[in-house]
Design a protein around this nucleic acid. Structure first.
Length: 568
RNA sequence: UGGGGAGUGGUCUAAUGGUAGGACAACAGAUUCUGGUUCUGUCAGGUGAGGGUUCGAAUCCUUCCUCCCCAACCA
């Protein structure tokens, strides 16, 4: 099994890999591995799904198997093709190709036939109790359930009723089909769970063909078995459902319906992130209530949001690898996600210069019409990125934060009398600070050392600070969107009595500014990523137009100055 | 009449009876034309608690504690 692992670092297996290896060793499924990713098309995929996708596809790939994409579309009232399309796009964008594309709704005829079989076996019955009565009869954690008065209907009667349910003879909610298991089970899922409900609702694929729809617990295992899935991986909250999953498949005593060995359900812990909500329901509320601009708002933990923010598929896959696979409830520090994208972009992103908050700098000993063309490397450590020209002129913009009239301790940027380097251009010394009537600094008058053209001191003198700069004449203006965490609380759900998770929404999570960019950024293909030196990684947003780009800050650079400055 | 799971540095994760290791975070230093990157080092857990078995326990047994999930005609 050590095909790609070097002898020095053999990575240990997580518990699901161990199960798979044990199955392969024992010859179960003939060594075959077929997993599936089974989203319900009722919302957009988020980073928690990405973990599941990477697990399912990664596991199968590791063992020479494959993965199916299956839409778990058994509840027509919540589902829509819009979501199907986005899910397909997101899985593909993450870098995965599925073997079969299936829909639980494709199995409706089969599910119906198997249900008739179960009725014939006395394993399922039509129940006329109302929704409230069913709840009441189910009992609770401490008291066993009561058997429905319809539980002992004869199979022929059940069959007749079930066929009439399908034929549309009964109103919505009037009857259900139930599995006949054990009303006294300690596991609530086994107290005669519902298999079918009557629901006159238009289905995104089957239209109005059906007025009865199967429940998840019934449809899911059957779908897995039909596709001959070997390992059915889901999250922890379904642990209680496993006995039911197995029960539905094991009732096929005659072997008419499923091939053995049957698929096995395996549960792992879902992903949680600090400063993030992950449930589809809450993400939907964020969109509906306008706290964000849409499912793909760069502040959202959705795959489409992260993509728009500038995250790469590689970084998300690396993240999924690093968080691991286990069964304990965990909360991953969102900083780990940021570390993954920084690591990826450090190597991949071409460098550019930008100024977020401009301050004019005039080089007084440079002529008005003087222009020095400088070939700027696009990556400091990788010459294959090439270069692009920039023009050094008398009037420039620099970052306002790079000047301090009374320098702090250990400050080695610009200050009165201080000398700094303009990135790859030259050395300048601040000679004069120009202020407006209110006392605000509006311009810095500097002199440059012509011998330093290119950025190196002619006499080898050390200059600690290096600043980015933009020539006023060629500067372009663009909207730049800076993001902060969407929530101010590490756990947005942890609110005091009477509070709401929305109370912890960060009002300053989006800051749109007009920034100054170097001319090479005038046309940026949406989705293209750059490092704006000293500022962070940025990604061109689809809102941008040629000549008027819009950039999202994906993540800032590590900033040890800010850390130093923040210290008491 | 309750059932099902889980506890290892700040956060994750490994160790499958034999030196508690790795990543992220943090801290310190070196290098650096990005206070970035890179490199080096430091930090920190006797593994939820007690008891037991054993030459030896995170690992096996036992009692307890804590946390999570389950009572939709959702998935």
């Amino acid at each position: 099994m050590s095909d790609d692992a070097s002898p020095t670092e053999s990575r240990s297996l997580h518990f699901i890999e161990e199960i798979v290896e044990a199955d392969r060793a024992s010859g179960k499924h003939g060594g075959r591995v077929l997993t599936r990713f089974p989203p319900e098309p009722n919302g957009y995929l988020h980073i928690g799904h990405a973990k599941s996708i990477c697990l399912n596809f990664g596991l199968a790939a590791k063992y020479g198997g494959a993965t199916n994409l299956r839409f778990d579309d058994t509840n027509p009232v919540k589902e829509d093709v819009e979501y199907v399309d986005s899910i397909r796009e997101d899985v593909r964008w993450l870098g995965f190709d599925w073997k079969g594309e299936h829909y639980a709704s494709d199995y409706f005829p089969f599910l119906y036939d198997y249900a008739e079989y179960l009725i014939g076996q006395g394993k399922a019955y039509v129940c006329d109790l109302s929704e409230a009565e069913i709840r009441e009869y189910r009992g609770n954690f401490h008291v066993p359930g009561k058997e429905s008065p319809y539980r002992n209907r004869r199979p022929e009667e059940n069959l007749d009723l079930f066929r009439r349910m399908r034929a549309g003879e009964f109103p919505d909610g009037s009857r259900v089909l139930r599995a006949r298991i054990d009303m006294a089970s300690g596991n609530m899922n086994m107290r005669d769970p519902l298999m079918y409900r009557i629901r006159r609702s238009h289905h995104h694929r089957t239209g109005d063909t059906w007025c009865i729809y199967p429940m998840y617990d019934y449809a899911h295992g059957v779908s897995d078995a039909l596709e001959t899935i070997t390992h059915s991986i889901c999250t922890l909250e379904f642990e209680d459902h496993r006995p039911l999953y197995d029960w539905f498949l094991e009732q096929d005593v005659e072997g008419r319906f499923f091939q053995r060995p049957l698929p096995r359900q395996i549960e792992f812990a879902r992903l949680n992130l600090t400063y993030t909500v992950m449930s589809k329901r809450r993400l939907l509320l964020l969109v509906q209530e306008g706290h964000v601009k849409g499912w793909d708002d760069p502040r959202m933990p959705t795959i489409s949001g992260l993509r728009r923010r500038g995250y790469t598929p590689e970084s998300l896959r690396a993240f999924a690898e690093r968080v691991g696979v286990a069964k304990r409830d965990t909360v991953i520090d969102v900083g780990l996600l940021e570390a993954c994208i920084r690591e990826d972009l450090e190597a991949k992103a071409p460098r550019r210069l930008a100024v977020l908050n401009p301050l004019k700098l005039v080089i007084t000993n440079m002529a008005e019409d003087e222009a020095h063309v400088i070939e700027m490397p696009n990556h400091p450590d990788d010459p294959s990125f090439g270069t692009r020209p920039m023009v050094l002129r008398r009037e420039l913009y620099i970052e306002r934060d790079d000047f301090m009239e009374v320098p702090a301790r250990k400050w080695f940027r610009l200050a009165p009398g201080a000398e700094v380097r303009l990135r790859r251009a030259c050395l300048v010394t601040c000679r004069e600070v120009v202020k407006d009537a209110s006392g605000a600094v509006v311009e810095l008058r500097c002199t440059w050392d012509p011998g330093s053209l290119g950025g190196d001191a002619p006499d080898g003198r050390k200059v600690k600070g290096t600043l980015q700069w933009i020539p006023v004449k060629e500067a372009i203006r663009a909207e730049v969107r800076l993001y902060d965490r969407l929530f101010t609380a590490e756990d947005p759900m942890d609110v005091p009595e009477g509070g709401d998770w929305r109370d912890t929404l960060n009002p300053a999570s989006l800051q749109g500014i007009e920034a100054i960019l170097e001319p090479a950024l005038a046309v940026a293909e949406p989705g293209s990523r750059f490092q704006f030196e000293r500022l962070g990684y940025f990604c061109a947003d689809p809102d941008g137009r040629p000549g008027a780009p819009v950039f999202n800050r994906t993540v800032g650079l590590k900033d040890s100055w800010a850390r130093l400055e923040a210290r008491p």
